[in-house]
Design a protein around this nucleic acid. Structure first.
Length: 402
RNA sequence: GGGGGUGUGCCCGAGUGGCUAAAGGGGACGGGCUGUAAACCCGUUGGCUACGCCUACCCAGGUUCGAAUCCUGGCGCCCCCA
């Protein structure tokens, strides 16, 4: 059993803030297994590396003997997270939420230890909550207090709409903490307000308040915005190894250290070694990033897949060869073949027009040979069974439909 | 309940009757250079087998030879007053 200070050293790594820090030390000192809460809303079916950041932290708690309470926000998902931008999210049906929850759970247990995890759904207690009870809960918060929340304040300032029900989101999340009697709750930095609301409500409910632990938001592969599927900059946990490797290689250099810290399973000591290499420049950034990509692929697909993914990467991007397994796609045989339409059928272009643009931009190759701009018709023999390439990384092999 | 404002392409944002498939920027995509990084340079950015045709400026009607631009009704959003 590690001392509270030793545990703290591990738990603190890669965190943004622990509020209050001393309270966590005190809780650790009791020696009992702590209850660590994480709430996730199953609003999208796929998890990405950004979601994995708190999951990894949970795993660290588990490895130190603590209990994880993973709350599936099947009820709060109906409210919708009031995270600022484009509010027009199509309301999810109960079925969609259920389905999302299933994949969510499956993916989460790639990281978590099931034995030390308590899985709860907040519809269990939020669903039966009556209006009277809701009034009692909401009376514990003031409008001014809720408006302090960053994104509410910002939206209010920018004269963008805030629906009344969105105010209830932090209330619901806080109530979750009361129900599960959390010792610690995790969240991204943007969650600090909600976490603190839980702390307050617990205290007012006569419970020992939870400690709030926030983790940095992981930027997506564009290096600017936080990782999100809707920004198109996400690395999915279920992405194929090659895909995952490629995406990781494309992150900006400046993010390499952060990714090491938040997306790999290296120990605190190993991380410090890597960070030293990066800051002194003793190892080439490209090499660092390769290792990062390998490590991450390894977490989700195993060591062999990581080695294969790197080999495939070299083949396509270093030696500019086609990948080993170019997908064969059946198309209607025609002679001549209208190339823009073919690109669309092969899934290499969303429309014929886009296909045309790709050709004119010099981005289309057949067996590695560029197609000249303005050439839209080719003989069937020239394409059938050959490797058609759009851009640097999209390949397909047309074969006649049988 | 009353008053005012606003709604343009993926996003922001010009445009007040024909020269507008719609300026400019961002993003995205493609090419070059590279380490599939960044920076930089160039090109493309509604659909269509395409010197043409079709669809487009919140929606539905209308005026006009002609509308993103004018009129009527509706819808969304914002602000002020209550």
């Amino acid at each position: 059993m590690l001392t509270p200070e030793q545990q703290m050293h591990i738990l603190e790594s890669g965190t943004e803030a622990i509020v209050p820090r001393q309270a966590l030390l005190d809780k650790l000192a009791t020696g009992r297994p702590l209850r660590i809460k994480l709430g996730v809303d199953p609003t999208a079916p796929d998890l990405h590396l950004g979601h994995a950041v708190p999951l990894r932290k949970l795993r660290q708690f588990q490895d130190l003997g603590h209990t994880v309470v993973l709350i599936i926000g099947d009820f709060t998902a109906l409210i919708g997270d009031p995270s600022g931008r484009s509010a027009t999210r199509p309301p999810l049906t109960v079925e969609q939420i259920d389905e999302n929850a299933q994949t969510y759970i499956a993916q989460a247990f790639r990281i978590l230890d099931p034995v030390k995890t308590e899985l709860r759904r907040n519809s269990d207690w939020l669903g039966p909550l009556g209006f009277a009870e809701l009034l009692r809960l909401t009376s514990r918060f003031t409008v001014a207090r809720i408006l302090e929340r960053d994104d509410f304040a910002k939206r209010y300032e920018e004269q963008r709409p805030i629906s009344l029900h969105e105010f209830l989101y932090p209330v619901a999340q806080a109530y979750d903490s009361v129900v599960v009697e959390a010792d610690v709750e995790l969240g991204g930095t943007d969650q600090l307000f909600n976490l603190l609301a839980g702390r307050e409500l617990m205290e007012k409910s006569g419970l020992e308040p939870q400690v709030c632990l926030t983790l940095p938001l992981l930027e997506g592969t564009d290096g600017v915005q936080k990782m999100s599927k809707s920004y198109g900059n996400a690395v999915g946990l279920t992405d194929a190894p090659d895909e995952m490797f490629g995406k990781l290689m494309s992150i900006p250099d400046a993010l390499t250290a952060k990714y090491y810290r938040l997306a790999t399973l290296l120990t605190v000591d190993e991380l410090e070694a890597v960070e030293a290499e990066i800051s002194t420049g003793s190892v080439h950034p490209g090499v660092q990033k390769r290792r990062l990509a390998r490590l991450v692929v390894e977490v989700y697909h195993g060591p062999q897949a990581a080695i294969d993914a790197e080999a495939a990467f070299d083949r396509v991007f270093k030696r500019h060869e086609a990948p080993v397994d170019v997908p064969e796609i059946e198309v209607e045989a025609a002679d001549p073949v209208h190339l823009p339409a073919l690109l669309r059928e092969l899934g290499l272009a969303p429309s014929n027009g886009e296909g045309r643009r790709l050709i004119d931009g010099g981005g289309v190759r057949i067996d590695g040979n560029p197609v000249a701009p303005g050439v839209y018709d080719l003989s069937w023999a020239a394409v059938s069974g050959h490797v058609v390439q759009a851009g640097k990384r999209h390949f397909a092999r047309p074969v006649p439909r049988t």
